[in-house]
């Protein structure tokens, strides 16, 4: 399992204060998710593409991610053009595709991809643990942050555990198929995974209690706003503010 695929890099966005990136990502996602004016969405597309370029990520990797994201959107394309109603554009058999339906589906596709590209450029460029620190500075409940830290920490450990169990099954000539034997074996695999993690959790709890853990992580690294952070924040706030005003004030 690969964690933090896009986090290694040295672009401007990689170095930006993660607190800012989270704030901008949230504002941007919310505005785009709610917006329906094309000028606002066009600005959003340009903004997210600009972010992607600034982040200097492998475009191929990003494109591959987007393919997966678009599975659900593709599914919606099978229906929306034909069920939205409005002026008929063309028909396939008994189904009439409407102009409005296609525009609506197109809008959803653009919105979805724009948000994801911005999220990759803004958030995936920071290691998850650092994001956790930033979130705790942004007043997210500490229990939730601890849960996130521990989960990230054990995700890779348990994935290795899973690989080991899976290898043991393979050595014993297990070949998955659509049959009861497969389902039973995989269920036991999941059960075993849960048991191993339960035991591991107990050892972790004891080890942490021995070391005096009482529900507090002391953050050693604190974020400090640099000049470039403030400049970038102003620019990004200007764009996001511009999008919001395009959506709700200018084009009302």
């Amino acid at each position: 399992m690969h964690i933090d695929n896009f986090a290694s890099g040295d672009s401007l966005l990689h170095r930006l204060d993660p607190r800012l990136k989270i704030v901008i990502a949230v504002l941007f996602s919310v505005i785009v998710a709610v917006a329906d004016k094309s000028l606002c969405l066009a600005t959003a597309v340009c903004f997210s593409l600009a972010l992607l370029l600034i982040a200097r990520l492998s475009l191929r990797e990003v494109f591959l991610r987007l393919l997966v994201v678009n599975a659900f959107i593709l599914f919606l394309w099978l229906f929306l053009p034909f069920t939205y109603g409005g002026e008929k554009l063309f028909s396939i058999g008994p189904l009439d595709a409407t102009r409005d339906g296609i525009i609506y589906a197109l809008q959803i596709t653009v919105k979805s991809n724009t948000i994801v590209v911005a999220l990759i450029a803004l958030l995936a460029t920071t290691p998850i643990i650092t994001l956790g620190h930033a979130l705790s500075h942004l007043y997210v409940p500490s229990k939730l942050i601890h849960l996130l830290f521990f989960t990230v920490r054990y995700l890779q450990v348990l994935h290795l555990e899973y690989d080991r169990l899976r290898a043991a099954m393979k050595i014993r000539a297990f070949r998955p198929g659509t049959n009861l034997h497969t389902y039973r074996s995989l269920s036991y695999l999941i059960g075993m995974l849960l048991i191993k993690s339960f035991d591991r959790a107990d050892r972790i709890r004891k080890a942490m209690l021995c070391r005096g853990f009482h529900g507090e992580f002391y953050l050693l690294s604190h974020f400090k706003l640099q000049k470039i952070d403030v400049v970038m924040l102003l620019i990004m706030m200007l764009v996001v503010g511009g999008m919001a005003s395009l959506q709700w004030i200018i084009l009302k």
Binding site: H146, T178, L194
Partner: peptide
């Protein structure tokens, strides 16, 4: 969820996350 149970919940969360990656033939 008290502080002591955070590791337990987290490790099980991770386990469920890993389990959800398993592809089950259908």
């Amino acid at each position: 969820m008290d502080n002591e149970s955070i590791p337990r919940v987290a490790v099980l969360t991770a386990a469920f996350f890993v389990a959800s990656l398993i592809r089950v033939p259908l």
